[in-house]
Amino acid sequence: MSPNLILAEEHAGSTLRRNLLAVAGTLLLVATYAALVITQPTNLTDGLGQGVALATFAAYLLAALLLLAAVLPDLPVSTLTLIPVALALNILLGQFVGSVMVPLYLDSIGTVLVGFLAGRRAGAATGVLGTLIWSLFAPTVLPFAAGAALVGFLAGTAARFGAVRRVYLAPIAGLVSGVLVGVVSAPVAAFVFGGTSGVGTGAVVAAFRSMGDSLLSAVTKQALISDPGDKAIVFLIAALLVYALPGRLSHSYEFVRRYKVLGKRGAKQSA
């Protein structure tokens, strides 16, 4: 029998290696974040500032790549075929929002959708891959890969614990996720780019700076204004899209069946 028609053998060594990669990625992210928050380098453009920018960029990107390497070999084919669609939806729906002048990003709908349907590992992988591919069109998003992974991871975690079973729970989960993502991503914006890359967000950071805040504090406050609202809407839209799927389709994902992601709504759909 062809080796492709039987299940691949799972070696204890490979599972351990993947777990170690995930732990290393998480530790690197936490250590970099803690070091930046504790030291709060003030000089952005002289010697130390350049070193901090490079180290932050490299550490956040490496952490995201380690998490991707830990997760990718585990994903089933049904999830692997879902991820490219989600990545394309991130870009297309993000552009569609831009075209109607709504002041939101909504560029993570696909990532959250994968988190809801295929779980947190798939969501995290989608976040990292989405950032890597988007960086071909906008290289400045590259160091935010870890933040994007966190969005997918939190979406999967929220779905696992019932956030998609009631429509009002999804935006609440999005709000909480937005706070965490904003806090994690702020050091990248502050120490790699010296603030933000948009004029609107830059004006908010400038306002906080003029009130005496440090750069990290101002960028974190700006992120806490923008991200929770954005993620609340993204989680709500992704939940509504999942509800709109035929039960046959949504229940084809093992994660949805195993953790009863859709609750009673799912039972009605599949009946």
């Binding site: 603030g195 830059g202 400038a206």
Partner: peptide, 30 residues
């Protein structure tokens, strides 16, 4: 990508240095 980023840097560092809202040579250089 670069023009909005430049505008943002000018607002944050060129105009709004810590604790005040004024244009400084040091801020513009940063």
């Amino acid at each position: 990508i670069v023009l909005p980023a430049f505008a943002s840097q000018l607002l944050i560092h060129g105009l709004a240095s810590s604790g005040s809202l004024k244009l400084t040579a040091e801020g513009l250089s940063t």
